[in-house]
């Protein structure tokens, strides 16, 4: 059992490292594309092909891995009117049901995102390769599902809120 928990913790760490890597690359690409566009348009009168469309899609490539990171860190926006989080017993008790509910909802959202992506793939608007950019949607919702499942198991022994 402890060995399984250790493996799961390692899996979570590997996932967050991957997601952070993607988000940082997307940030870097956003900055590079913006700069290239500003310089290209104003000085060289040339632009990166499809650069503006890619730039707008990169918003999703920052935000969705970011959402997965936020799930792992328990940083998603939530209400707590009764200030239950201050009560360790409640945190331990609620970890499983709350994270399972989240995992179930994210499963359905991932399924919806997959159906959406298949449609994008079959009916591309403009250049066909752009459909790859929306692959982040199903991927991220699947990752969110995985993170909430991991949290359901691992959140019980977390010391810091």
């Amino acid at each position: 059992m402890p060995r399984l928990l250790g493996a799961l913790r390692q899996l979570e760490r590997a996932l967050t490292r991957l997601e952070l890597g993607v988000a940082l690359l997307a940030f870097a690409a956003m900055l590079a594309l913006s700069l290239a566009d500003i310089v290209g348009r104003n000085l060289l009168h040339a632009t990166v092909p499809a650069g503006d469309v890619v730039l707008r899609h990169l918003v999703l490539w920052v935000a969705l891995p970011g959402a997965a990171l936020a799930a792992a860190a328990g940083r998603h926006l939530h209400l707590d009117p009764a200030n239950l989080a201050a009560w360790p017993r409640w945190r331990r008790l609620s970890a499983i049901p709350v994270n399972l509910v989240a995992a179930v909802v994210c499963t359905f959202l991932a399924r919806a995102a997959w159906a959406f992506w298949l449609d994008e793939w079959r009916h591309p608007s403009g250049q066909a390769w752009l459909a790859w950019l929306s692959l982040i949607l199903p991927a991220a919702f699947a990752l969110l599902t995985l993170h909430f499942l991991l949290r359901a198991v691992l959140a019980r022994d977390v010391k810091t809120p």
Binding site: G40, H45, A46, A50, V53, G126
Partner: peptide, 8 residues
Amino acid sequence: NGWAAVAL
């Protein structure tokens, strides 16, 4: 025509 368009 060599025009650099803004796609929106």
